[in-house]
Computed example of a mutant assay.
Amino acid sequence: MNGFAKTPEPPYYAVIFSSQRSEDVAGYGEMAEKMVALASKQTGFLGVESARDEGLGITVSYWDSLESIKKWKENSAHKVAQEKGKSTWYQNYAIRVCKVERQSFFEM
């Protein structure tokens, strides 16, 4: 995941996933990569951006509709990852769903 997601002109939706991981992160990286690959094949997926430091991680995925977000949340493989996150990988997390109404970019 390098650079900014190539999103269309608004409106579209963003799912912001903020997390603090636990000390047990065995298998986390592999699952995260698998989820990005799987999400990118889902109808309505527009892109993803992610950043993490030692304490806080933020991943923003972009979607064309609320229905696409709902279908991703209900994806069976994604549900397995969600449960593993709750039971093992995360101390806590927050999910926020937003409608993007305006965007601008700066490039050199």
Rank of each mutant, 00 (worst) to 15 (best):
M1S: 15
M1D: 12
N2D: 07
N2T: 13
G3T: 03
G3N: 05
A5K: 01
A5V: 01
A5C: 01
K6R: 12
K6L: 08
K6W: 00
T7E: 05
P10G: 05
P10H: 05
P11M: 02
P11T: 07
Y12L: 10
Y12P: 05
Y13V: 10
V15S: 01
V15K: 04
I16W: 00
F17M: 04
S18A: 12
S18G: 06
S19I: 10
Q20R: 14
R21N: 12
S22A: 15
E23F: 11
E23H: 12
D24V: 11
V25E: 14
A26F: 00
Y28H: 10
M31S: 14
M31K: 15
A32I: 08
E33Y: 06
E33D: 15
K34D: 09
M35R: 02
M35Q: 03
M35S: 02
M35E: 03
V36K: 12
A37F: 05
A39K: 06
S40M: 07
S40N: 07
S40D: 06
S40L: 00
K41S: 09
K41I: 04
K41M: 08
Q42A: 05
Q42W: 02
T43H: 09
T43Q: 11
G44A: 01
G44S: 01
G44V: 01
G44C: 03
F45M: 02
F45R: 01
F45N: 02
L46A: 03
L46P: 02
G47P: 07
G47E: 06
V48Y: 02
E49Y: 01
E49M: 03
E49G: 04
S50E: 05
R52K: 14
R52Q: 15
D53Y: 04
D53E: 03
G55A: 10
G55D: 12
G57V: 11
T59F: 01
T59R: 03
T59M: 04
T59A: 03
V60W: 04
S61E: 06
Y62W: 08
D64R: 01
E67H: 06
I69N: 03
I69G: 02
K70V: 06
K71R: 12
W72Y: 06
E74R: 09
N75L: 09
S76D: 10
S76G: 03
A77E: 15
A77T: 15
H78K: 05
V80R: 09
V80Y: 00
V80P: 02
A81P: 06
K84Y: 13
G85I: 02
K86I: 13
K86Y: 08
S87N: 15
W89A: 11
Y90W: 11
Q91N: 12
Q91I: 12
N92S: 15
N92R: 13
N92D: 13
Y93I: 10
Y93R: 09
A94M: 10
A94Y: 08
I95T: 07
I95R: 03
I95F: 04
R96V: 13
V97K: 06
V97N: 07
V97L: 07
C98T: 14
C98V: 14
C98S: 15
K99W: 00
V100T: 07
E101A: 07
R102L: 15
R102A: 13
Q103I: 15
Q103K: 15
F105K: 11
F105P: 00
F106G: 09
E107W: 00
E107S: 13
E107I: 12
E107R: 13
